[in-house]
């Protein structure tokens, strides 16, 4: 059974006559890393948002199966408990919410859902230190409010750090590479590579091929106008880098 199966997914914006996704099909197996590439406005981030359970989108048709279950039935927190994780394109600053308290609650709610014991304060702090160390996250950041005053790169690293803390089964990265300098890009890619495993799937959404120099995908999809129009292996990403999206668009138009 596939970890994630998206079938004929049509999505619009609640209360508005706008359609963003027009029949997306995608199957992702555990252990695989898929990349979805596409130009701005093609619907990539909307797909990520729908997977995480954002309420402003309306699913008009189709279904999403996660571990064989209907993902769309679940609240955002239930998805997190079931092992779905979204690394946000724009991580939110939460002044007054300490990283430690936030992550302790998050980790323990996910652990509880998995039938694991809650971590006490000492065990949690040790676990957090280990993971920060593993992800190369400046430990000082864990003493601050969530994302408050973090640089763009620190926010993205913090998303990957949270991924490492929560150990999801399905990790969705929404343009995690955008706006990063080369060091941060390598750091984020390094973190993802450390977290790749046989019992975890990744869906990486990106505008550019560059992060795929560091994270080698098993499959690459091209999304245009709310549909996946082409699927290939890592070489497809290089082709897109070289030739842009126009040739895919022309091919798709010709096929239609």
């Amino acid at each position: 059974m596939a970890l994630l199966e998206i079938k004929n997914l049509h999505v619009g914006v609640e209360d508005e006559d706008i359609k963003i996704l027009n029949g997306v099909d995608l199957t992702l197996d555990t252990g695989d890393l898929h990349a979805i590439m596409g130009p701005n406005g093609s619907g990539k981030s909307t797909l990520a948002a729908v997977l995480a359970g954002r309420e402003e989108y309306e699913v008009l048709d189709g279904e999403i199966l996660y571990d064989g279950e209907d993902l769309l039935e679940l609240e955002p927190e239930e998805r997190a408990e079931a092992g779905v994780f979204l690394a946000f394109q724009y991580p939110v600053e939460l002044p007054g919410v300490s990283m430690t308290n936030f992550l302790k609650e998050a980790v323990n709610s996910v652990r509880e859902a998995r039938g694991q014991d809650e971590l006490g304060s000492a065990d949690f702090l040790q676990y957090m230190r280990e993971r920060a160390d593993m992800m190369g996250l400046n430990a000082d950041l864990t003493k601050r409010s969530v994302n408050e005053g973090f640089s763009g790169g620190e926010k993205k690293r913090n998303e990957i750090f949270q991924l490492a803390m929560l150990e999801p089964k399905l990790a969705i990265l929404d343009e995690t590479d955008s706006g990063l300098d080369i060091d941060a890009l390598k750091n984020v890619a390094d973190g993802v590579n450390k977290l790749r495993s046989e019992d975890r799937g990744f869906l990486i959404i990106t505008h550019y091929q560059r992060i795929l120099d560091y994270i080698v995908p098993d499959h690459v999809h091209v999304m245009l106008d709310g549909k996946i129009v082409r699927t290939g292996d890592k070489d497809l990403a290089l082709e897109l880098e070289e030739h842009g999206y126009d040739w895919v668009r022309e091919e798709a138009a010709a096929a239609a």
Partner: peptide, 20 residues
């Protein structure tokens, strides 16, 4: 939404935001 996407219930997320 950010807090809920990390596994906090809607109620816990709201309470945490008030405290913050």
């Amino acid at each position: 939404f950010y807090l809920r996407s990390r596994g906090l219930s809607k109620r816990r997320a709201r309470i945490l935001m008030l405290q913050a």
